[in-house]
């Protein structure tokens, strides 16, 4: 089992990750607006020692039943110490143990934000949770988007064979082009899609609707795929709302949306804000082009305007 990245990465400075959290939050808010009583749901996540997702989920959605899973024994002690709200229950369990032991009687939003590279145990988690989720439940999973260490130095052909041997039929759609370093997130995405579709295909009481398929990179590539298990009527309404409110997420149904990282000064950011909130050409856009920014960056910023975090330095 991989050790928690919270040991060595400062969570305070992961803007793409923070954008992802905010987008996920908006997806859940949209679901709440479509009639799902999200405030009564419980949230199951992997809060580590910062609990950022827990803080956002409580503040913006009002959920107050929360479970944080921490498999690492020493991190578990720190996690309990750092828990921000008393209603967050930290459990020293793996996701596999949690799924096996929990009855899923309560409506659930589960986000398994794994630290490590993809492995068969993650796909087994997906298969196991698919048997327990109720109509209206949400499930998201995040995994490292690069090649696992076991195949890092192998040729593309050997990587593909390794994926086929390790993940069997879930790797059926992965191609040689997908296993190149620059494109490996595509392999991970295809594996997760196949695992989720396959896991939920046997459920006849509803269907799994993909609501979030994104990749991002603060230091290493990460992939998040997830959605909700819904009845047909629920799904149609939610899809309509999402297409209106987060159009960039639903533009391409089976493709990953890349959450861009922006490294901007405050002044540049102000220009971006103005440029993307005025249709067509504007002095702000022209200025950005003169500064060397490209239209594709302006378009990406337009998608993420509401989600890109702003960090300021304070001197204590």
């Amino acid at each position: 089992m991989a050790r928690s990245t919270a040991r060595w990465i400062s969570y305070d400075l992961r803007p793409a990750k923070q954008s992802e959290r905010r987008i996920l939050l908006d997806v859940l808010k949209t679901a709440a607006e479509s009639g799902l009583p999200l405030t009564t749901y419980r949230y199951v996540g992997m809060g580590a020692v910062r609990f950022y997702d827990f803080l956002l989920v409580h503040r913006y959605l009002g959920m107050d039943k929360m479970i944080s899973l921490e498999h690492d024994k020493s991190m578990f002690r720190r996690s309990e110490f750092n828990v921000p709200f008393s209603f967050i229950e930290v459990r020293n369990r793996t996701s596999t143990q949690f799924i096996e032991e929990d009855s899923f009687d309560q409506s659930t939003v589960a986000w398994f934000d794994y630290d490590g590279g993809i492995g068969p145990h993650m796909l087994r988690d997906i298969a196991a949770i698919s048997l327990k989720m109720k109509l209206g439940d949400f499930f998201f999973t995040t995994v490292y988007g690069g090649p696992p260490s076991a195949i890092h130095n192998l040729s593309d052909t050997e990587r593909l064979i390794w994926l086929q041997e390790t993940f069997g039929e879930f790797a059926g759609e992965v191609t040689l082009a997908d296993v190149e370093n620059s494109n490996f997130t595509s392999s991970i995405h295809k594996l997760l899609l196949a695992a989720i579709k396959s896991a939920f295909a046997a459920r006849t009481d509803g269907s799994f609707r993909f609501l979030l398929q994104v990749e991002y990179s603060d230091s290493v590539p990460m992939v998040t795929v997830g959605g909700a298990f819904l009845a047909d009527g629920q799904a149609a309404d939610l899809n309509r709302r999402l297409a209106r409110q987060l159009p960039f997420l639903t533009r391409r149904s089976d493709e990953l949306y890349e959450i861009a990282s922006f490294h901007l000064t405050e002044q540049e950011r102000t220009l971006f804000d103005r440029a993307v909130t005025k249709p067509g050409r504007s002095p702000a856009r022209n200025k950005l082009l003169k500064l060397g920014f490209r239209d594709v960056e302006i378009a990406a910023y337009r998608d993420l305007l509401r989600y890109v975090p702003r960090y300021v330095e304070t001197i204590v």
């Binding site: 039929e169 879930f170 059926g172 759609e173 196949a194 695992a195 579709k197 396959s198």
Partner: peptide, 19 residues
């Protein structure tokens, strides 16, 4: 048929068929 729809959309069928 529903069974066919589910199977075709199960995420692994296309790969199995191609194989």
């Amino acid at each position: 048929y529903d069974d066919v729809l589910r199977r075709i959309g199960d995420g692994v069928f296309a790969g199995q068929l191609r194989d």
